[in-house]
Amino acid sequence: MNDDELQKMILLEQSGELSETRMHDLKEALSLNPDASAYRDALVLVADKARDSLDTDGPSPEVITAIKEAGEARVAQRRTLFFPRVAIHAFAYAAVLAIMIGGWFLFANDGRSERILEIRGLMAAVNVEELSQEDPVSGQEDDRELRALARQLLIMEGLYFDDDTSAEFSDESLTIDAAPSPTVLRGRNTDARRARRYV
């Protein structure tokens, strides 16, 4: 380690910036190098004496007063701005909340209830067609397809079905032997439906 590096380490040691590893190296070097020790001692003495010697009275009391007045003015200014700022923030939060709540009410209804109503109407129309005597065979095929489609659509809307699977449609039969039990939608009042009779 050369003198220049040693002196820098001493300076860093005095300012508290020397790492522990380097501190160990420095202590070792100081123990082996008397000039380095003398430099360190001189540094401490010069710094101590200079610190005391360079200390001065000041600034003038007028400067301190001016600083205090500036500090007071700033505090007063911040107080004046504070309340309008609080009011503006409160209004902004309220507006955002109102928009969020209003938006939820507006867009939460995605038309699902309308779709279910239309599908129910479709199923009801299928039942009416079953009553038609004009073309019963083709009517039954169309009915089954329409009912299957309507059922699928209702499943897609998240509704459950409790169909009575004992009811059967026979493709060869020209007449409907057993009426299928009405479709039950969970959570709905199905008493009126159960009361219907299909022919």
Binding site: L54, D55, T56, G58, P59, S60, V63, A66, I67, A70, G71, R74
Partner: peptide, 25 residues
């Protein structure tokens, strides 16, 4: 102490000291 020893002038040091604190505020 830093300011007056850098500038060598107490008049300047007073002004600079005040200016420092105005900027801080």
């Amino acid at each position: 102490g830093y300011i007056v020893n850098m500038t060598g002038s107490q008049t300047d040091a007073d002004d600079i000291f005040q200016e420092v604190w105005i900027r801080v505020i």
